[in-house]
Design a protein around this nucleic acid. Structure first.
Length: 226
DNA sequence: GCGACAG
DNA sequence: ATCTTGTCGC
């Protein structure tokens, strides 16, 4: 398959972001949820133009999954995309979108990785720490770690581990014969909770409702801008 | 030195 | 992420 080429990143920038990332990491806490969520949020970002980012937050009632609110926020893109540092490019705008929510959620499902990251600080963990809110990530592509292909049937799961065997996340088949999802906890959440909620949010599509709707509305809001 | 690389 | 048509499989 075709492999993307990532242009060299500014060494100085990478050093600074790495330090910030490691500081944020000290705040991460992996714990089971204390109470069953009543509201779960989904968030995702898109780029109407190369220099503009549009972030969306949707809040669904849980476990009914009815959409109760959707908001978005747009702003200028100030940081380039560098593998492993996606959060610094998207999180600032995502947090502003979060501020616009009337109904704050009990937990946030982010489009991206949680601790299944080189330094255990994917965007889901980053956002969770910034808001000090429970969060977890659901990604469509692997960033780091190893795994064996889960069975082709919906609900099949296989672990995502690092070289030392540490569990980074779980690879979940959310729909029969469709590429699996990579689910990992972000902040104030554990793997069992992340996996359980992801499965509870499936409604016949590859993506669980929170991120699927956030994805959908990101596209709608984008059109709405022109 | 050779791959891998979220969105 | 984004740019894009037709096409294969259930």
């Amino acid at each position: 398959m075709y492999r993307p080429y990532h242009p060299p990143a500014d060494p100085q920038l990478v050093r600074e972001l790495t330090q910030t990332q490691q500081e944020l990491r000290t705040h991460v806490r992996l714990l089971p949820l204390t109470h069953e969520p009543r509201f779960i949020a989904g968030c995702d970002s898109s780029f109407p133009t190369p220099e503009t980012i549009l972030s969306v937050f949707v809040v669904l009632r849980f476990p009914s999954l009815e959409l109760v609110e959707k908001v978005y926020h747009t702003g200028p893109v100030e940081v380039p995309y560098v593998p492993g540092f996606l959060s610094f490019r998207e999180a600032p705008n995502v947090l502003r979108a979060y501020d616009k929510l009337q109904q704050k959620p009990d937990i946030i499902m982010v489009d991206g990785h949680g601790i299944a990251h080189p330094r255990r600080m994917g965007i889901a963990a980053h956002i969770g720490v910034m808001l000090d809110m429970p969060s977890f990530g659901v990604a469509k592509q692997k960033l780091t770690g190893n795994f064996t292909e889960p069975a082709a049937t919906k609900g099949s799961i296989s672990p995502l581990t690092d070289k030392s065997g540490e569990l980074l996340g779980e690879v979940i088949r959310s729909k029969d014969k469709v590429l699996p999802l990579f689910v990992s906890p972000g902040h104030r959440c554990d793997q069992a909770t992340a996996t359980r909620l992801t499965l509870a949010c499936l409604r016949g599509y590859k993506l669980p409702e929170p991120t699927r709707l956030a994805d959908h509305w990101a596209e709608e809001f984008k059109k709405e801008l022109r």
